[in-house]
Amino acid sequence: MAEPVPFRGGGFQPRARRLVAVATLAVLVAGWSLASRAGWVSPIALPPPEEVATALVRLARSGELARHLAASLSRLVSGFALGAGAGVVVGLAIGLVSLARSAGMPVIAALFPIPKIALLPLFVVWFGIGEASKVATIAFGAFFPMAVATYGGVDGVDRTLIRMAQSFGLPTLSIVRKVVLPGALPAMLSGTRIAAAIAIILIVAAEMIGANEGIGAFILAAGNLMQTDQLVAGVVVLSVLGLTVSGLIGAAESVLLRWRR
């Protein structure tokens, strides 16, 4: 008597299906809408999605959205560029030079765990209440994950590739540019993701503490006036902002890391 060998393999290979993703979001929004209309949730606690959408359209038409978004984005871009740029430079130095490594590692270990928003009051004392203190907070927040990711990436570069480059007489600068940097790039791009997420958190927090313009300030003001439709509209804008940033980094990855596929 013959029996088939019982199948024991398979599974553990989850796949993301686009349709399910879209349907899930649609069901969530529909459930939210239903809950509001049926009166299960008070419209003051959570306005229905239609009202949030109307509020968003109104904000977009009046130019208020653009004004706040522009303020947040300019802080975000300048702070992130400063912090991440410095992080790459310092990370490279730590990854390549013994002196920088010995000096930099303990400093990073000591400063990385500080919630950077706690430093905003100090930065206000140093740089004043204006833009500089907020930009500095974001830069500081983006610096550490970028520096850590960069030196981690440099450490991870295959040493035989570096020895190969040396054995063909490549100058040090060329080795850094053509072997070390491309080798560290995947780690640096995942560092960029983390740094960008931290930068968005910090910009909102900083704007809630001390700003008249910006998405964070807008959300806080809406909350103080119990305008929950505007408040939720602001939160939706943040979600879209996060998605956009993550999409941009994803696009950069697929272009820059084409060789990995």
Binding site: D158, L161, R163, M164, S167, V179, P182, W259, R260
Partner: peptide
């Protein structure tokens, strides 16, 4: 040198 693991830059 000619290397055992080829030492080619994957990028």
């Amino acid at each position: 040198f000619v290397f055992q693991d080829f030492a080619l830059l994957p990028w």
